[in-house]
Design a protein around this nucleic acid. Structure first.
Lengths: 186, 186
DNA sequence: ACTGTAGTACTCCAGATGTAGTGCTGTCAA
DNA sequence: TTGACAGCACTACATCTGGAGTACTACAGT
């Protein structure tokens, strides 16, 4: 077992790409090696088995999906009206869309979670915490809408992002949908 | 190449289950054979290659997801108000949830479509047509809400169903969310 | 010089593919 | 009724691919 953190992170980031590109079944040690451009067998040395790899990937995805400090701070500035919320939601969609492999990898992890109770528990906890954090931030900042608003936004925006990433021509104007969504839900 | 339609359909239905259970990479001729409980090599005889198999599976999923005649007819009866729409949406969620492998298989096909332009075009056409059909039915029947309402319902409900199928404990009360969704969007 | 990591090279193994070949069954005509 | 034929079910096999794991060598930092 090797412990170089830089290399481990690089391997995990490569694993995210592999997961997004080839799906859960495509996530093999060798595929990670190849995509990370490291010698064959390296991933074998860093992760004891596939379960270990998947778990660490899940953590890494969430680490990368967490918005940075400036983004979070921006929520607390400016007027707390529909316009601001609309802008924030557009930014959210664009931010997640800009890291497509993250969203797709998370989707693959969900599907894999169907078969791995351990992974399912981990993802359930993380995602529920994420939703709750969004609700708290939303309410505290005084933006329009209640807890249900946040949950419904979460649902619709997630699928909208999925459409953009997999079948972009189904909804040619996602921005219009985001605007309308906020207008009706908040 | 064999042509027994019953057997072909049985193989496709088995393929849907395999797709939902093991993902796109798990969809092999041998896996389909095993799950359909037919002798090894049968799927090889019915589909020229993987692309052929995937395409036919996509058609079959849509064939099975299409609501039956009584359901469609029900839309045109009863009052055209929020209550009716709410009931219809609950029924929709329950109907799709009752065929989990269909939804999951479609998801896998989407992800596979990222790599296969042919499949992507096929799915884009089918899904866009499906959304448009829903819009038309909705408007014609006089139910509350406009075209955007239908599209936003589609987005949120699809992700809600996904949550129910993969991480059911994230939203313990999906029915409440459906009710609220209709109330705010329509 | 020692320790730990990077990188290499192999052996083993599982599973997938495609096809050739055999036998069964249903159909049609004499 | 029977015999020939066609199409399908099923079996078996030869081959191929690719991943797992590990032992081994090389090298760099202390």
């Amino acid at each position: 077992m090797r412990h170089n953190p830089t290399r481990r992170t690089a391997l995990l980031d490569a694993a995210i790409d592999v997961l997004a590109r080839d799906g859960a079944r495509g996530l093999t040690f060798r595929a990670v090696d190849t995509h990370a451009a490291v010698p064959t067998g390296t991933a074998s040395n860093y992760f004891t088995n596939r379960d270990d790899l998947l778990t660490q990937v899940a953590h890494r995805v969430y680490e990368r999906l967490t918005p940075d400090a400036p983004t979070m701070a921006a929520v607390h500035h400016g007027p707390r009206d529909h316009t601001t919320l609309t802008r924030l939601m557009h930014e959210l969609v664009d931010r997640v869309t800009a890291f497509p492999s993250g969203h797709l990898a998370l989707l693959e992890l969900r599907l894999e979670a169907t078969r791995r109770p351990h992974l399912r528990d981990l993802l359930t906890t993380r995602i529920r915490a994420d939703v709750d954090a969004n609700i708290t931030t939303h309410i505290d900042s005084g933006l329009p809408g209640d807890a249900t608003t946040v949950e419904l936004l979460y649902l619709a925006l997630n699928w909208l992002i999925l459409e953009r990433l997999t079948l972009p021509d189904v909804f040619p104007d996602p921005h219009h949908l985001v605007t309308e969504l906020v207008r009706r839900l908040a």
